[in-house]
Amino acid sequence: MAPYHVMLVHFPIALWTVAALVIVLRTFSDGKLARAADAVLTPLLFVGMVTGAAAFAVGLLVWPTEAATSSPLARNHILLAGWSLAYWTVLWVTRWRGGERVWQGLWRWVMLGLAALGVGLQTITGTLGGYLAGNPSIVSEIVRRLGWEVFTTFYLPNWVLAAVVISAVALAALGMVGARARN
């Protein structure tokens, strides 16, 4: 399955990267080109999500589950790939539902930040994939200098896990408070 995974991952990487470029362009411009590019943002993100999900599923079949979940590098790759997919999916839903509203005021900067984070996630995911395929890159050294040794599994202690879950609930609650105030 490895060759098919390598083939498939090109699609989400390319689509999400182009989507990020469109977001950068649209953040800084209300011009005709920026608006035209923005018009294809939702399809780009959607196709990115679908191909990303396919690449993720095929990736899980490359090694036996026991092997993949016992290798620190593979665990990290799965973790980052899962988060990338979820993250870009959220971006797609937001752009799809929000339409032009995501370029109003503070929102365009939020979109820019989200895109930057998404690119970061997919870059690290791709780097780890490269490592697993036998092609290490300098990106892992940058990540190492920022505080994460990629040869160690990225996992959180229980108290941070609790904080993450509480924050997730709090984020949803903040959204509901906002929605209620508007209604």
């Binding site: 979820a86 937001t94 939020v110 896990l161 997730a168 984020l171 906002g178």
Partner: peptide, 20 residues
Amino acid sequence: TLAAGILLIIGLGIALNLLL
């Protein structure tokens, strides 16, 4: 950690969409 991260992203997604 994988599950908590996805939950956090979903939480962010809910917040963003409701605050549009």
